[in-house]
Design a binder for these strands. Structure first.
Lengths: 327, 327
DNA sequence: ATATAATGTGAAATAGATTTCAAAAACAGG
DNA sequence: CCTGTTTTTGAAATCTATTTCACATTATAT
């Protein structure tokens, strides 16, 4: 069942059917005749043929590090809610945390497979920047600020500046920080820098060195908490770069018999369910992942409509959810 | 840059280039000439044109209820790991828990947009069955057994039979069950039926009525736990159909001042991180979501190769992770 | 050396839409 | 009724690959 068959059945030319499908010039009678035939046959134009001809696929590629993660899948949900409503499909590219595959996928999307790309980024190398520069397909980055590129990200710096300041205001004087890899600008550098700046501004610069770098798992949070306590002695507070790290740290602290928050305070980031079910519940910085995905999708669609508009950055806020671990 | 350009540059015909790309007959010299030109130009054939001609898209559609959920995103990760390795792409269709949209997506995938579909199903109506019957594209269902269809699912019945029996063996005599909607055959019917059967077989059939139906959230688990306790009085154990329900129930039990497991035992299902971070940790039935996704992908690829092979069902096992809440 | 089989090659048809272009039809104004 | 617009219409070109077919070249067997 193709457009020619429909045309024959409706007694018109294929062009007329095409115009019907794309709201072109057409008399009422023919419109009606075509409508009827399409309804009866359940005809739907073949997406590939349309894409071949028009060079538009109505499909967006999403490159992400790992779909089975709270933050990433939330961003995805936000992206989807916008795109679905605008009739776009999503082609998924999961790199399984391999930044090299990120490049591969970006490259493979750069032909006309998709109309645009959303990149949920982690690490940006020089090759990433080069790739984004030369890309003919518009790209929007989520989760990282990338000057010159369209991007949507959270205000990591102020989030961690605030939470550190909050702990100091509660009377914490000896602090520790469990951070992420510095290659990750948002989760690694910014959060760590904010922590140090906040301490400096509070006159506690001597604490700035009490930092460790963990992976994004609870177990590595646990290890690094141990490392910090064993290296620097008892601490008043532990700022963690993510909720899962904080959960791991909490388990370690409890295993030592330390009371949280009485003996040591603790904070995470993300706003995941985990923080609400531990004992004590963990104070966290809530990020609006779904919003960030939705914003990225809107930004990308805007770029598709106005390809020459300048790149736009959207910085999203955060919300400190004060739970028991910092009271 | 199309196949004709490449052909011209390499001094051959487009057919030769096509054969090069599809390992057809070709002399070594021409192969080499073409290889070189492709390398220099970075040419990659246009996917839409290939798909139009061959009627194969190398793309699989995945229809799912909600991407930002632990189980669903884990299944996705499993699907992806297999498909990626076999050079297939994933087109995502998130129904946001609307079974009607499920039908829409299945329908829209039934043209030649994708080579096959994986459906992470919840509720199956008569229209679903009809749709699957008439579908020209192979479909594999994940998470639900559907006689006659290819599917991959967990052994919900035995999982819940076992865990109920385990609680009885520990001495529990008055039990309660928080289940899911019966429209969901796997999570609703099977688990509930297994719970009742296990009680009957243990000679405790009078307990079988102590059940409530909750949504998949912690808050509804909390409500239903309250409902059960207020209706049936003190209980020895609470079997929950999912981890999140169990978390909600636990919060309620603790708010009453009940000790878990001393005063009342509690179990969940899923094997999510949540179970390991609560106090006490929650005994759960671990499912192998990633495996189920991977199995579904393999099954689907098999069907693509042997379209006439009979439908195949894969029933996956489970693992009871005994944590503190049932000791 | 000849018949036969195997291998290599390009021209042309094909997949299913959209879009351009020129012509036909309808309409208005004189 | 004729001329000039405006509105409709379909034939044909186009998008980019694959595949068939017929032919040309080798290689192998007799």
């Amino acid at each position: 069942m193709n457009i020619a068959d429909i045309a024959k059945l409706a007694g018109v030319s294929p062009s007329a059917v095409s115009r019907y499908l794309n709201q072109g010039y057409l008399s009422q009678e023919k419109k009606e005749a075509i409508r009827k035939v399409i309804e009866e046959t359940g005809y739907r134009p073949l997406a590939q043929a349309q894409a071949l001809r028009t060079r538009r696929t109505k499909t967006i590629g999403v490159v992400l590090p790992k779909i089975d993660s709270f933050s990433v899948s939330s961003v995805m949900a936000g992206i989807d809610s916008v795109l679905e409503q605008r009739g776009f499909q999503i082609l998924l590219a999961d790199t399984h945390n391999d930044p090299l595959k990120e490049l591969d996928y970006l490259d493979s999307f750069d032909d006309q497979r998709v109309d645009g790309v959303i990149l949920i980024g982690t690490v940006f190398t020089a090759r990433h920047i080069a790739m984004l520069k030369k890309s003919r397909v518009p790209v929007v980055v989520v989760g990282q600020q990338l000057p010159g590129a369209s991007c949507v990200y959270h205000d990591d710096y102020h989030a961690f500046y605030d939470i550190t300041t909050l702990l100091v205001a509660k009377g914490c004087r000896t602090l520790g920080f469990i951070g992420a890899l510095p290659q990750d600008k948002a989760a690694g550098q910014e959060r760590s820098r904010a922590y140090c700046d906040a301490l400096r501004d509070a006159g506690l610069e001597d604490q700035a060195g009490h930092t460790a770098v963990a992976g994004f798992s609870a177990s590595s949070g646990r290890e690094k908490a141990q490392e910090l306590l064993e290296t620097y002695g008892p601490l008043d507070a532990l700022v963690c770069a993510t909720d899962s790290m904080a959960v791991g740290a909490l388990q370690y602290l409890k295993s030592l018999g330390l009371r949280v928050p009485e003996d040591i305070r603790l904070t995470g980031q993300g706003g995941s369910d985990l923080c609400g079910v531990t004992t004590p519940t963990i104070t966290t910085i809530r990020y609006f992942y779904e919003d960030s995905g939705a914003n990225a999708a809107v930004l990308l669609l805007e770029r598709l409509e106005h390809p020459d508009a300048p790149a736009k950055e959207i910085k999203l806020g955060y919300q400190i959810v004060e739970n028991e671990s910092s009271r």
